[in-house]
Design a protein around this nucleic acid. Sequence first.
DNA 1: CAGTATTTGTTCGTATGTATA
DNA 2: GTATACATACGAACAAATACT
Lengths: 248, 248
Amino acid sequence: MDQETTSTARRRGTGVTEDAIEQIRDLVASGEWGPGTRLPRETDLAKQLGLSRNSLREAVRALSLARVLEVRQGDGTYVSSLEPGELLEPTLSATHLLRGRTVLELFEVRRMLEPGAAAMAALRADAEVIAALRTELDRMIAAGNRADELVQADAAFHDVIARAPGNGVLRALLRSLSTSTVRARLWHGIADRGALDLAREEHARIYNAIAVGDADLARAATLLHIVTNETWLREHLGPADDVPLDGD
Amino acid sequence: MDQETTSTARRRGTGVTEDAIEQIRDLVASGEWGPGTRLPRETDLAKQLGLSRNSLREAVRALSLARVLEVRQGDGTYVSSLEPGELLEPTLSATHLLRGRTVLELFEVRRMLEPGAAAMAALRADAEVIAALRTELDRMIAAGNRADELVQADAAFHDVIARAPGNGVLRALLRSLSTSTVRARLWHGIADRGALDLAREEHARIYNAIAVGDADLARAATLLHIVTNETWLREHLGPADDVPLDGD
DNA sequence: CAGTATTTGTTCGTATGTATA
DNA sequence: GTATACATACGAACAAATACT
């Protein structure tokens, strides 16, 4: 018995494992396997898809890293929740690997999104949102110059804004656009140049604008804040990171 | 307070394969393995990381799907280019699996990004960009009511705008935010209600605004265009897709 | 609280397909 | 055309974690 493939081009995507990945993804995309669906056990699924268990496991592992599947040892393999927060989590890992000028590209995109998110947060002026922002702002003040605490409070502060519009995709993307490594680098830079008070002031302005429900002001304050960081980062990108562009 | 993250309640990340994934990713993130680096052959790398060849293959396959590694049979395994267009390609596959209200979330985010991209395109008023837009606009007109051709021209048209700002992250994200399935659905809807001329007119307005270098107009025309589609999609989301929101 | 069945995790050995010199 | 180096694939066996009775 010759398992002749459907004469696909020798491009990307040949091989039984790659086929299995596609087939499983199609089953999920078509809705046949909805969120939480339990997959057949590896032995059966392998037989069903016509490949060995080892090869199938490669497919499952790949889809597991992509957060499409969720594998629980001793239990079984399930389709994930398929929520934006889940499916876009790998995007965060991806942006973590970007370097050089592409880090600035992250900031440029963030600059296009987060001011809008802050404006929406101000429009609702939700009491919980305001309280959460206040908490992180206080944490930021109490943190002194401890970088790790500052980074955490900063991340939490911006995440409150990111989730205020109630859009899971927006929240996940904003998360991906400000990686922890860059955030850490920024706060160390802020501390080194003694600009902690300015940084806290910028956050306070955003907080105040949202607290009083001023959307325009929230948008402006957020934009200014992001550009402050973007500018500093642009000037302090190590020359090693400054990869020369070769024409496309 | 913060939900997920931090706490290791569910032991995600145990196991030799998961460890290998993390180790390889760290080597790439640290820059030790830069773009294009050739990895040791599977046998050696497995020995080096202290796991079997099969388990290592699972790790490599997963990172290959994530576009961090690139495997070439008979040759070897290499670190990818690590460019945004490469690393953010899985994000497109991810958004392809979103359904129901989360599809509208994609549109909301796109609405925050693409008008800005169109404005930037207008600011430059690059001759090549204008010509490329014209080409796709003509294609869209010549396509009649053939949906596949319309979808392709439409995708190409918006991609010209997406890449005009010269930001790879922005381009990749805009690509991810408008999936081919939704695009196909939209054009079929447009054809069904006999709104092909309106759709072409909206594209023509965007084209004209960019061609004359009017950034404000380009921004407005793009926003209107996206909202047209967003509104239609909101009204035509199958009731089955209309998942009830439970408060979080 | 056992003990047992079920399911994924991991390894080894071996054979085959593919690109390159 | 041949040799070599490498990834691809399979099957079987045992370990570890979980579920169930």
